[in-house]
Design a protein around this nucleic acid. Structure first.
Length: 901
RNA sequence: GGGUCAUUAACUCAGUUGGUUUAGAGUGUCACCUUGACAGGGUGGAAGUCACUGGUUCGAGUCCAGUAUGACCCACCA
């Protein structure tokens, strides 16, 4: 069987994914093994794969595959999130293109369109994950609006309502005038915006004036005491003013106490109230109070019993209560009203001003504070236990720097507005009687049973009831995810035992997600987990960073700076992209993604591919010359030791979730140790055969390497695994289910001595380099041994790798030779006629100079009495070793200098 | 405004409780080599006042304080 000259991932990636699927390798059912479980952070059902998903899912897949190869029953549950606002917005836009207005549809008609949309586009992202190699148990694919999962949401609502944790109330909410829904505080993105600060004059009612009516505009500018000035960024809301507020301690305004003023343009009379809330040194010291359109004003209004005048429609246009500019959009109204005020002489000045404005995360519309009746979930009670899990380490955050942020949020948690004025989602299980009474129940029938308990609402029919139009916030379903994917029926029923799945897989092991949804999602999952299962839903939370481009900008569609992941896979292969992503992604830090790292990943794959080609191309011979045999025995023993050493390192990196370091350790093991050193040691001369024993050892090493590589590069390793050089494989004998080797004891002495051997080889190559001697020109080497290393054992290796004819021992320095030191031993490469004495001397002097500098530092330490007294004995001993070592080397070098004349 | 975290070679990052040869890796860069696994290769170099300023200590990239820059979170100054 021949093998392609270069690595060509397209030839086999799809093939192996299909093979894994057909053989149910991703599938998991409870058994006697220890489970290892991950639930996917469900991507939006309408989403397409972006670089963030790539990173996130590569990490999950590496963890799952590694667990699968470590004797665990690995289960990675995939699925999608219905993402109510985002999806509904997309469906509405799609309908609009077709000329259909959402308002003209009934709820069920709209939902039919929405499901149609979901069926068409909903699976795309999951199929894309398959390209990446994601080893999810697809038979468990879940959707947050699956009937059973939706029922879990309803049961949860009812359960929490019964506990008194869900309530209904009028609150100031963040209103999205574009999405026409309330959004939670967390869905509001604050951005700094350049605005204008308008200084507006309000006329003060003059009790001495006969009729008390406002003066004309031109008049007031001359009578300073007859008006006051307020500063606002929102002049369009003056029609909603209920009062003007000044600080009672503000002496400038004592004359206003008890007075009333007129709202400009509409001349409505409002009182001046006093409250210390107003900061005297900000703006003018006068504050307009607009309870309907500002949270703080609302609270101030409540305190002073002011009327609430709501002048805005749900879509952000002015309503008839505004009296003027009715029907205009709030932003257009702002400009127009500024003009009107100016014309009427009420606009004193306009200043540029920067301030924070909230925008809807989903629609990017400026958020409007709005009073409305909403459903809320009390968080304070549930936050306590959720905080404890993290505080006491039951749930570990990786990296742990996020604990502070988490703690801060949980200690200052606010109630959660859970109702959304949308149709796409779980409809709130609340029913209204004709008289306005409301009960929470699963069905209309159950609601009637409850209504029958009160005289006013007895004997109602289901058709008399009206269900709440709103749906719950998407997060109110996704916080159940780690439970509901296994057994939705336990949500809302803390007493339930649960099915076999949940008892086996829950709590899950690792959750891999982005820090920005630590509160939205992670914290709430912990709350729900505690509520319904009495324990947190996962043990470790691995927080990935944001994927940014080279310039540090967040990758986004709108910037167009994000490569299409599928293009990358096409170009570099899935394995190459996986390696590329992992190489530059430490946990919790943003990753500065650069396509060149995928290239590095692909090059690595190619290197492995070609190392394999080399081995595969060897022909066999049962016997070998004595020298080669000896070389190979040492090489095999050394690589075995080195492999075990690397395994220990990789294992420990995995344990501490340092995936990029685990990968880098693997990378070096393969590239440097196996390819650059081991294979070069045992490689027969061109077209020469290799002995059976070495061949078998090399193959075995390669197979062990494939196992270690598999979690990172599943496709390539599976492809090579099935090559005939490994012998005939049984049907289910696949790399994906092979077990990673466990580390054996390593031969420390051998590892150390080979390090010296490598150094010797490097030094000789260095000499060739600097003296322009071709690698093909064989050289002689002599060594004056001062250490306890037996170079006879390694002479064959050195000869082969450095093209040395003979390695002889000498007790005297050799003149006319290039020299170097390795360990404490002196090496001589005789180069008659090719030695520049002065150059040699210079080089030796340089070495001595370095060692002297080094020695000086060590001596300074040792001469310091306090160091010797205070430092740990081992440290002091080490310093003494360093000193002795440096002194010995200096002595040898000085002798060499003398010998050179 | 308050808080959290970061700042180490051109780039991306390690540096594990302060001492482990006067700071390491990968990539890139430079020089040379290369028809025999691989130019997507090999060998060997160069490259860092560990952001800055103080402090603690026998000893600081590592601990403390402050400064600068950046990122994120929180916050009602109209």
């Amino acid at each position: 069987m021949s093998i392609a000259k270069t690595y060509s991932p397209k030839d086999f990636e799809d093939k192996w994914y299909q093979y894994w699927m057909e053989n149910d390798f991703f599938k998991s059912t409870p058994d006697e093994r220890e489970p290892y479980t991950i639930v996917i952070p469900p991507p939006n059902v309408t989403g397409v794969l972006h670089m963030g998903h790539m990173l996130n899912n590569t990490i999950q897949d590496v963890l799952v595959r590694r667990a699968r190869m470590s004797g665990k029953n690995a289960c990675w549950v995939p699925g999608t999130d219905h993402a109510s606002i985002a999806t509904e917005a997309k469906v509405v836009a799609m309908l609009k293109e077709k000329g259909i207005n959402k308002k003209d549809l009934s709820r069920s008609e709209f939902l039919a369109y929405a499901y149609e949309w979901k069926d068409k586009y909903g699976g795309i992202i999951l199929d894309q994950l398959k390209k990446l190699g994601a080893s999810c148990d697809w038979s468990r694919t879940a959707f947050t609006m699956d009937p059973a999962l939706s029922e879990a949401v309803i049961d949860t609502f009812i359960h929490l309502h019964k506990k008194g944790l869900i309530y209904r109330g009028v609150r100031m909410v963040n209103w999205d005038p574009k999405g026409l829904t309330a959004v939670s505080d967390e869905e509001v993105i604050r951005k700094e915006v350049n605005q204008k600060l308008y200084y507006i004059r309000y006329e003060v009612k003059d009790p001495e004036s006969e009729d008390g009516s406002p003066q004309s505009g031109s008049h007031i500018s001359h009578l300073k005491s007859h008006y006051l000035t307020i500063a606002t960024t929102r002049p369009e809301t003056i029609m909603a003013d209920s009062a003007i507020c000044v600080n009672p301690n503000d002496e400038r305004y004592t004359y206003l106490h008890g007075k009333t003023v007129f709202v400009p343009l509409i001349n409505r009379e409002i009182p001046v109230i006093l409250d210390e809330y107003v900061t005297m040194d900000f703006g003018t010291g006068c504050l307009k109070v607009t309870p309907a359109h500002d949270l703080n004003d609302y609270e101030l209004g409540q305190k002073h019993h002011l009327p609430v005048i709501d002048i805005l429609n749900d879509n952000g246009t002015l309503n008839e209560k505004a009296e003027i500019l009715i029907g205009e959009d709030r932003f257009i109204a702002r400009k127009k009203i500024a003009k009107l005020l100016d014309e009427a002489g009420h606009l004193e000045k306009v200043e540029d001003y920067k301030s924070q404005v909230g925008f809807s995360e989903r629609t990017d519309a400026a958020i409007e504070p709005k009073l409305s009746m909403q459903w809320f979930c009390n968080m304070a009670e549930m936050a306590g236990p959720a905080l404890d899990y993290v505080n006491n380490g039951d749930v570990k955050l990786i990296p742990d720097k996020f604990i502070n942020t988490y703690r801060h949020w949980m200690e200052n948690v606010k109630d959660w507005c859970i109702s959304r004025q949308l149709w796409w989602g779980q409809q709130i299980p609340a029913f209204y009687a004709p008289n306005g009474a409301v009960v929470v129940a699963k069905t209309a029938e159950e609601a009637i049973e409850q209504f029958n308990l009160t005289p006013q609402t007895r004997n109602l029919q289901p058709s008399d009831l009206k269900q709440d139009e709103d749906v719950v916030d998407t997060w109110f379903s996704s916080w159940l995810w780690p439970i509901s994917v296994f057994d939705p029926s336990v949500c809302g029923n803390p007493e339930a035992k649960g099915n076999a799945d949940i008892n086996y897989y829950y709590p899950t092991n690792d959750l891999v997600t982005a820090p920005e949804i630590l509160f939205f999602w992670v914290a709430r999952m912990i709350m729900a987990g505690h509520e319904f299962r009495g324990e947190a839903p996962f043990k470790n939370v691995y927080l990935t960073g944001i994927v940014r481009d080279k310039l540090g900008r967040k990758m986004s569609k709108s910037l167009g700076n994000s490569p299409d992941p599928l293009d990358l896979i096409e170009k570099y292969g899935a394995d190459g992209v996986r390696v590329g992503m992992l190489l530059c992604s430490p946990a919790g830090n943003d990753i500065m993604f650069d396509e060149s790292s995928c290239e590095q990943g692909r090059n690595f794959a190619n290197k492995i591919w070609n190392a394999f080609r080399l081995i595969k191309g060897w022909s066999l011979t049962p016997t070998l010359s004595e020298g080669e045999g000896a070389t190979n025995i040492v090489a095999i023993a050394w690589f075995d030791a080195r492999f075990n050493e690397a395994l220990v390192e990789i294992e420990s990196n995995f344990k501490s979730y340092r995936l990029s370091e685990a990968l880098m350790a693997t990378y070096k093991l393969v590239w440097d140790d196996y390819c650059a050193w081991y294979l070069e040691m045992v490689k027969p001369a061109y077209q020469q055969p290799i002995d059976q024993a070495t061949y078998e050892a090399s193959i075995q090493f390669f197979e062990r390497i494939l196992k270690v590589l598999h979690p990172f590069m599943p496709f390539l390793t599976e492809e090579l695994w099935h090559d005939e050089v490994f012998g005939k494989r049984e049907d289910k004998d696949c790399c994906i289910v092979a077990q990673v080797p466990t580390a054996q004891q390593t031969d420390e002495k051998l590892l150390k001595e080979i390090d010296v051997v490598k150094q010797v080889v490097s030094e000789i190559r260095n000499i060739r380099n600097s003296k322009q001697i071709s690698p093909k020109e064989a050289l002689k080497l002599a060594v004056k041994v001062n250490s306890d290393i037996d170079y006879n054992a390694y002479s064959n290796i050195i000869s082969k790798l450095a093209n040395i004819t003979t390695l002889s021992r000498t007790d005297e320095k050799i003149a006319g030779a290039a020299t170097f030191m390795a360990s404490r031993d002196e090496f001589f490469v005789p180069l008659e006629g090719n030695i520049d004495i002065e150059e040699e001397k210079e080089s030796i002097k340089k070495d001595i100079e370095y060692l002297n500098g080094f020695l000086k530092a060590v001596n300074a330490k040792l001469a310091n009495e306090r160091f010797v007294q205070n430092a740990k004995p081992a440290i002091v001993a080490n310093e003494q070793n360093k000193k002795a070592d440096a002194e010995a080397k200096i002595k040898i070098l000085e002798e060499s200098l003398v010998a050179l004349g």
